[in-house]
Design a protein around this nucleic acid. Structure first.
Lengths: 327, 327
DNA sequence: TTGAAAGCGCTAACAA
DNA sequence: TTGTTAGCGCTTTCAA
């Protein structure tokens, strides 16, 4: 059995209160006494129990982060940015992936019980759940999701860059665009579509091609629909994975890109560079880091009013819209 | 203030023990009583405190996982596989990234205090720390790292596939190989190099090109060294990112691949496919899932003797060793 | 500067 | 079937 505070107290010939003071480095303990306690702790290999401490302090010293998945580079980067800041702030990080979980909402609520606050990415849980948690007093920061009630949020600029991306396509002569992705799958995607629409000029148009999953398979699959009929001037994909999937099939079919059709993605994942994909880069790590800081302010009570941060994004032009096909 | 078990007991007119029984779904409570308690809990919005429960049960119901980084796809996938199994087993998952942390060892030891067991990936902490934790009674599973003492481990087959990969290169006529990566950075890399050596035939040779970081930048950088002098027949890279970085620079310099020089990676990340990179696929998600199961056995005390799992890997041949340069 | 004692919110052994 | 009570390991008044 591991040594407890009482064992140390006995060994050092002091009370448990004194041991507690020494271990917490609170002052008001004579140097000689402190030494005796530290000696005792060392010989007994005493390590204060987090469990006991947390119960007494009624705090977890841990934060949670909820995300749909970690396969794509996007969420992994966000989580990483989050972890690094949370770690610096002395908090442990609990993770929860809702992918393939039918009890996501319950799992998130359970998680909320185990930490002092949590970050929720994208469309992992319903607004109702967010509101219920907030009402219950949980500290919450939403990422890549529009604000709900008085809850903090951090998002990357979608509309403006989608507009810039679209203007780039229009400049190159594109008029018939197909937006690939479902605006209802994520708030981000909805905003991107809005940006595309805002950029339209007379005689240009955008058609939405709905897909359920924003992954390579879906992208590759939908190419078939277009090989038998007319191709648009450009495919504006909701994310890179979708675009990469399309690209592969289009190239395999010998379609000239960007000559015959242009393709764009969103995120600027690592593979995008190798595929020569024009896309929009998001500050993924910063999203996580910013969320961690906002959450810390909430937990430490340094701030009462909600904040909504919007981080900048950047258009990255490559060969799928400009230049020859080989990257 | 949130309701406690005592509030519910008072509201329902029973003792706290009964409330506890109902909340834990332990039987031996009359249906009518249970209903009264559940009603009271509902009206008071009572949610049992994990803190109190954990202290009483002296367990955390949480596992930790320690990794160097999450940027590459490799660790993200392992973590994902881990989280999904741990989640199913009803455990929360704590994460800790050692990247850019100078107090990694201390952070890991602190983490060990907050969970019932932990998984350690690669070379994140020293053997000494692993041994100290094990001696202290911590439940540990090592991933992508050779066994230490009586500690569980899970690794992917490195040597055999490295041998197969090398034989593939030799079959294509390669004789002068350069192994890129530092065997000392990770045990996996050391094993891969060993596999390469085992495959060598008379008049073939392998030279090691040491690099500190196994990322794209490092790969791109070291290409310069070879453009001014003779290229080998093949670059065998310790991972895909390194290979992708080299590939980009080599292609930019107009070097014919695989005609002039062949290139191979390891991991089969998403970008590898777009780059046409010959590589070895690892069951990344499975590594994490297997680790989670082993850890659960340790924690639940279902197993006493250490286990060492080795998962299969698969050679994936693409255009950087076979075929024309365009993927 | 130190100690005694009362919690923190729960579980679990024992008694009724 | 239910209640009483003693912890779990710590923090934190309040007194000395």
């Amino acid at each position: 059995m591991r040594a407890t505070i009482r064992d140390v107290a006995r060994e050092a010939g002091v009370s448990i209160a004194t041991v507690s003071r020494v271990m917490r480095e609170s002052d008001g303990v004579r140097a000689a006494t402190r030494e005796r306690v530290l000696d005792a702790a060392r010989t007994l290999e005493f390590v204060p129990s987090h469990l006991g401490r947390q119960l007494a302090e009624r705090r977890h010293a841990a934060n949670g982060i909820v995300f749909p998945d970690l396969s794509g580079p996007y969420y992994a980067e966000v989580v990483l940015g989050y972890e690094s800041v949370a770690g610096e702030l002395g908090r442990s990080v609990l993770i929860l992936s809702t992918r393939g979980r039918d009890d996501a909402e319950a799992a998130v609520e359970a998680m909320a019980e185990r930490c002092d606050g949590l970050v929720i990415l994208g469309r992992t849980v319903s607004n109702r759940t967010v509101e219920r948690l907030a009402a219950r007093g949980a500290n919450i920061v939403l990422v890549a999701r529009p604000p709900v009630g008085g809850v903090d949020s951090v998002t990357a600029r979608n509309r403006g860059s989608a507009r810039a991306l679209t203007e780039h396509l229009l400049d190159l002569g594109a008029r018939r665009l197909v937006f690939v992705g479902d605006p209802s799958t994520s708030p981000d995607v909805g905003e991107r579509l809005r940006g595309v629409r805002e950029a339209l000029v007379p005689r240009s148009e955008v058609v939405i091609h709905h897909v359920d999953h924003l992954d390579e398979q879906a992208g590759a699959r939908l190419v078939g629909d277009y090989l038998t009929r007319a191709l648009p001037d450009a495919f504006v994909c909701a994310n890179d994975e979708l675009a990469l999937g399309m690209l592969r099939r289009l190239r395999a079919a010998g379609v000239d890109i960007p000559g015959r059709v242009m393709v764009t993605g969103w995120d600027d994942v690592m593979a995008a560079e190798y595929a020569g994909l024009t896309t929009v880069r998001q500050p993924m790590r910063d999203l996580g880091a910013t969320a961690a800081r906002l959450l810390d302010e909430l937990i430490s009570g340094a701030r009462a009013h909600p904040r909504h941060e919007v981080l900048p994004t950047e258009l990255v032009i490559r060969s799928t819209t400009l230049g020859k096909d080989t990257p």
